[in-house]
Write a protein that binds this DNA or RNA. Structure first.
Length: 291
DNA sequence: AACGAACTCAACCGCGCTCTC
DNA sequence: AGAGAGCGCGGTTGAGTTCGT
């Protein structure tokens, strides 16, 4: 049993949008607002499928879109967000006002990938690409779970505590083919051997202030958390576990989760803090502000 | 000037998720 | 509980544009 088509294909236009079609769509959305894309084309007098209308509006016609080239700051932000989130273009776009996921995806594929290759960085892994010596050194000195950030001619190893002392002595702050390995201790703001321009770079590093647990990290969740994860989403307030008498910040919005939906994390913001709730495979965390 | 190659990006496609009935 | 509708996402396509010879 196949999926029904989103529209009657033989009665819809395809390809580039005309100015008249754009104007019809703009006029309709100005009057009626976004939403109900399936019925929109007919209501707006457009021979397009709803998906096509939605895409045209979101990627091209929306008034809050930023036009023009990406700035260096946006480039860096995209690279850092991609390092953190992978190909989650919608999440990345949520962090760049006026940019769309499609635009960022295209920009990544046409510009940034090449830029990273030119820097000798693998755009998928964000690890050094073509310098066998550097790669081999990192493979030797740095545990695979370490977070690595490439910066100019430096490779910054976040969370230095998981790098053994002997490896720190042997490799950190040494230059290999012009690339310097730098350790950064996650418990302190200072990095060992970090020069002023490196610090300036690190200040630009992304601080999303996040706590995200993926399903693979489930074993790390204690029984208390699991109890929270199993609780019903709505209504059953007695099962809501009181964790700390503090206010909190819902991270769902800032991450771009639950767009267009009311987040259920922040119910009873007073003294009750839901530390984690779950939608199938995604845990959503609610962070007390005093942590 | 002409042609093909390379590049860009708007648009399309198909899948997965959520919601409703 | 399960099927279908609707939406959003990521990957891919292809027409238009730019570049190189």
């Amino acid at each position: 049993m196949g999926r029904s088509p989103c529209c009657e294909k033989q009665h819809t236009n395809k390809g580039a949008w005309t100015k008249e079609e754009d104007q019809r769509l703009i006029n309709y959305i100005k009057t009626n607002g976004e939403g109900c894309w399936r019925s929109l084309p007919k209501a707006a007098g457009l021979l397009r499928c709803g998906k096509s209308c939605r895409l045209r509006w979101i990627n091209y016609l929306r008034p809050d879109l930023k036009r023009g080239n990406f700035t260096e700051q946006e480039d860096d932000l995209i690279i850092n967000l991609h390092n953190l989130l992978g190909n989650k273009w919608s999440l990345i776009a949520a962090r760049l006002p006026g940019r769309t996921d499609n635009e960022i995806k295209n920009y990544w594929n046409t510009h940034i990938k090449r830029k990273l290759y030119n820097r000798g960085v693998d755009p998928q892994t964000h690890r050094p690409l073509n310098d066998a010596t550097v790669s081999a050194t990192i493979a030797t000195a740095v545990p695979p779970q370490a977070q690595i950030i490439t910066s100019h001619n430096n490779i910054i190893i976040k969370d230095a505590s998981i790098v053994s002392n002997s490896n720190k002595d042997n490799y950190v702050n040494t230059k290999i083919n012009g690339t310097k390995l730098v350790c950064e201790d996650s418990n302190s703001n200072s990095s060992s051997g970090v020069s002023s321009d490196q610090e300036a770079y690190q200040h630009q590093q992304l601080n999303l202030d996040l706590s995200i647990g993926l399903p693979s990290s489930r074993p790390q969740i204690n029984t208390h958390s699991l109890k929270l994860l199993q609780q019903p989403q709505d209504g059953d307030e007695q099962q809501e576990t009181k964790v700390a008498p503090s206010h909190g910040v819902c991270l769902c919005y800032s991450l771009g989760f639950l767009r267009n939906k009311v987040c259920c994390c922040n119910r009873d913001i007073g003294n009750t803090v839901t530390t984690a709730v779950t939608d199938n495979n995604m845990y959503r965390f609610y962070r007390p502000m005093n942590i």
